[in-house]
Design a binder for these strands. Structure first.
Length: 419
DNA sequence: TCGACAGCGCATATTG
DNA sequence: CAATATGCGC
DNA sequence: GTCGA
């Protein structure tokens, strides 16, 4: 799901907050929405659309799936481009469509220009160009002009576990369709297609569709039941956008913990293959298998500390395959893990920056005094701050506590920078 | 001028 | 065979 | 893009 919602949130940081030290400057800039200097350039395609479609232009409709596919392809193409900073970014357009229809075109098969105007700034020239082109030509010339090989690369790159390198290699060696890759037996397309890649290719369509909150609620109940039956001393929580109270999620991000695992062992040996059946993760995995929530042929990875695979609500043949990530966390790190993985991303950037101001390093395992060893920042031994709750982390950073439902940097950006 | 921009867990490829 | 490197996602 | 190595 390289160009899905999750990619959106991680890429926001990469491009906007890439340098920690410039964060406060950027924050200040974001608070004051300055008027664009070259409005005529920016709104060019929106204006063009308006003129070409006439007075009734607000009622013109575009196919949600066509617009979504075009924007996702363009964003995928962007990620394949070496110099991204000079290549347009379609995240704003994608966000607008997600806001109206989620990532599932079936939820709202067509969108009117009026709908889109409500959620997409007319200044977003590149996204309006795509809408304009679809209305005028029925297609997006920029994508049609790509070579057959590049179109395949773009499509492959949208698939989970197929990044730039694999996408390029497969297409360069003649692969053109998902079926080509699913049916390949060796390295006839330059590299062997991995198990995880074949799985993602098979369920690619389902994996691009967002999960409604009510469905995550059902997973939550079933997981709770399954783990409780297997071992009531194993605890778990769903993090991510679900914990923030959002109505849709791109995946289900779980943390599990157990009193017997208090500390992270930095030099724990890496076991090959499945986790030992009697280990914490082994028991979790077996509980998930027994409940029909995981299936051994639909796993991306199964390790002692991290398990991810596809899951669907048992007993419903129409239920879609959803990505479920399970992470094992030592109890000492739990508040940090919950905070870090509940997000949102921009809020976490802000918290890390506040930590840095106090010469602290904050990550999903803990917080402690910073010490640089050969270009890498670590915790100074013995300075790690042990906390029992997330609130204590906010306290240490001298910030007001935000409940999970309030953890949106966008909402709080005008308040938080004062602290 | 040039590379990093978090760093870790997992699967898999490559090297010794 | 084991150790190390690479690609990927988060 | 922007910093330090």
């Amino acid at each position: 799901m390289n160009t899905g919602l999750r990619a959106l949130s991680t890429m926001t940081f990469r491009t906007t907050f890439a340098r920690r030290s410039c964060l406060p400057v950027r924050l200040a800039q974001r608070q004051v929405a300055t008027q664009p200097l070259f409005e005529t350039q920016k709104v060019k395609y929106w204006k063009q659309l308006k003129e070409e479609q006439g007075g009734d232009y607000k009622n013109r409709t575009v196919s949600t799936s066509q617009l979504l596919t075009a924007l996702r392809d363009l964003q995928s193409y962007r990620s394949l481009t070496p110099n991204k900073s000079t290549f347009p970014d379609y995240r704003a357009g994608l966000r607008a469509v997600f806001l109206l229809a989620g990532s599932d075109p079936a939820a709202r098969p067509t969108l009117t220009v009026g709908d889109l105007e409500n959620v997409l700034s007319t200044e977003n020239g590149v996204s309006w160009r795509v809408i304009h082109d679809i209305l005028k030509y029925g297609l997006v010339p920029q994508l049609e002009e790509l070579t057959e090989e590049m179109r395949a690369t773009v499509a492959f790159n949208r698939v989970h576990a197929i990044g730039n390198i694999y996408a390029k290699t497969f297409a360069k060696n003649g692969a053109r369709t998902f079926e080509d890759l699913i049916n390949s037996t060796g390295d006839e397309y330059g590299k062997k297609v991995s198990k995880a890649q074949k799985l993602a290719l098979k369920y690619h369509h389902e994996m691009e569709i967002m999960i409604p909150r009510q469905e995550v609620d059902k997973f939550d109940m079933l997981i709770k039941d399954a783990l409780n039956k297997a071992d009531p001393t194993i605890k778990y929580e769903i993090m991510g956008s679900y914990r923030r109270g959002e109505e849709t999620s791109s995946d289900i991000d779980m943390v599990v913990w157990h009193d017997s695992l208090k500390r992270r062992d930095p030099d724990a040996k890496v076991r090959k293959g499945n986790p030992a059946p009697d280990s914490i993760m082994g028991r979790v995995l077996n509980a998930m298998f027994s409940a029909g929530l995981f299936s051994s042929d639909k796993m991306f990875a199964t390790g002692e500390k991290k398990v991810w695979g596809l899951s669907r609500l048992p007993g419903d043949p129409k239920a879609l395959h959803r990505q479920v990530d399970v992470r094992l966390c030592p109890t000492e790190s739990l508040p940090y893990m919950l905070l870090g993985n509940t997000g949102d991303n921009d809020l976490m950037r802000f918290l890390r920056y506040k930590a840095e101001e106090k010469d602290l390093l904050l990550n999903e395992y803990g917080m402690g005094q910073r010490v640089s060893i050969s270009n890498q920042v670590h915790f100074k031994p013995g300075t790690e701050i042990i906390v029992q709750t997330e609130k204590e982390i906010f306290d240490k950073l001298e910030l007001p506590y935000l409940e999970p439902h309030q953890r949106s940097y966008k909402v709080w950006k005008n308040i938080l920078p004062r602290y």
